[in-house]
Write a protein that binds this DNA or RNA. Structure first.
Lengths: 225, 225
DNA sequence: AAAACTATCAGGGAAATCCCTGATTTTCAA
DNA sequence: TTGAAAATCAGGGATTTCCCTGATAGTTTT
């Protein structure tokens, strides 16, 4: 046993701090060893503490003081100056832009404030064990948006005409594991035609075989998955 | 020549309506045949007009009236009741969530209000020609977010160890078009071993063949490309 | 210590891909 | 209207993948 997971909580609303401190202290593996209302307080206190996890409120809305650091700046600051401290981001906003930004600024987990207490505890434990985590609700949402974007993004590329319409149909089925015979049946054409389409795509893409063709296509978002 | 592209403009700020009407009328291929301040006005006017393109302000912030339709609701309404009218969305907000939502609710283009006049004109013309469009700035942003999300989303799956180390090496080469013989030589093992690795991966991933395996792997970011 | 996983290797046959050369029709833009 | 793509089809043979049933040895996990 290596002792409790030491959590520091940064959150501007006192009522939230108190509530979460109470909830987290219910768990025998977790202890809240400090709290702050803003980045300045945090930075002042951190050197004097041995923190495992920083539970970080993403948007410190309570603050009118614009000069103060926001969650993103704090995350980057911690990364640089306290690389051993792992960050669990906590926010009411779970839009793709913010989540992508916070996760890429070094946070190890993201939990929506709409998520329950269990998910927060789970996030802290997983992160402490070296894993990443995103709460179920947000995870689902991001997955959807990602799929949407996949679709949108490749309508944009000038490469949409790289393969002809028919070639793309064949390609799509190849990516789904269809054999030549399967594709011929599905598209009501002969196997020879399917082979020609594949051959032409292999030539166009300058690849060696179907497997590499599929890798090529997937990398460019030609496949829906 | 099929006459000018007939644009209807929905936008709550008069100054924007006037400005855009002036700008668009500079283009010989475009004519603004109507304007409205909100969804109710739009719905009233639409049946009496022959509109090609609806230039739609995404968020009608000027409106305090919460009961009124927002851009998303309008988009869906148009899709249902006037399927021939193509929508160009126009907004100050270009976050992934909103853009994905509007494009998936049937809009054919998205142009940020930060984009220049040229991009708006281009969007209208492209959409009228049956193509989709997203302004350069937003397009770049979405591409970045999409890549971020790709990374995030598959860290969630916890599937980093889905394939063994050796399997991943074989997989990588498969994605580069190597045949069994090539891989055997490259990894100093027999062809039979390579086949076994591939077979095991095909089974693990529950796919039909190598092509689908590569698609599967690529979609989850197992391939470096 | 047993079970599970990983990595290695093998034979043999069915199925599919790959490669070459060739062709016709349609469609679309210069 | 001429030419370039695109989509269709074909034969035949070389190569590769796919599928089945095995096996041995080392490592990790329970």
């Amino acid at each position: 046993m290596t002792g409790r997971i030491k959590v520091f909580h940064l959150e501007d609303y006192k009522i939230m701090r108190d509530g979460i401190k109470f909830l987290l202290s219910q768990d025998p593996q977790i202890t809240v060893i400090g709290e702050a209302r803003n980045g300045d307080e945090l930075i002042e206190m951190l050197p004097h503490l041995d923190v495992d996890i920083l539970l970080l409120d993403l948007y410190l809305d309570g603050l009118e003081d614009v000069r103060s650091m926001d969650g993103f700046a704090i995350s980057e600051y911690i990364q640089k100056n306290f690389p051993d401290i792992k960050i669990v981001a906590h926010s009411v906003y779970n839009d793709a832009d913010r989540v992508a930004r916070i996760m890429n600024s070094g946070a190890m987990a993201f939990v929506s404030k709409k998520a329950g207490y269990e998910e927060l505890v789970q996030a802290i434990k997983l992160v402490h064990g070296g894993k990443k985590y995103i709460c179920t609700e947000t995870s689902k949402k991001l997955k959807n948006i990602n799929e949407f974007l996949d679709g949108i993004v490749d309508t944009l590329r000038g490469e949409k005409d790289f393969f002809s319409q028919r070639e793309k149909e064949v390609l799509e089925l190849l990516g789904r594991g269809y054999s030549t015979k399967d594709i011929a049946k599905a598209l009501f054409i002969t196997e020879k035609t399917v082979e020609t389409h594949r051959k032409n795509m292999v030539d166009k893409a300058k690849v060696k075989n179907t497997a590499e063709l599929v890798a090529f296509a997937s990398a460019r978002g030609f496949l829906k998955h």
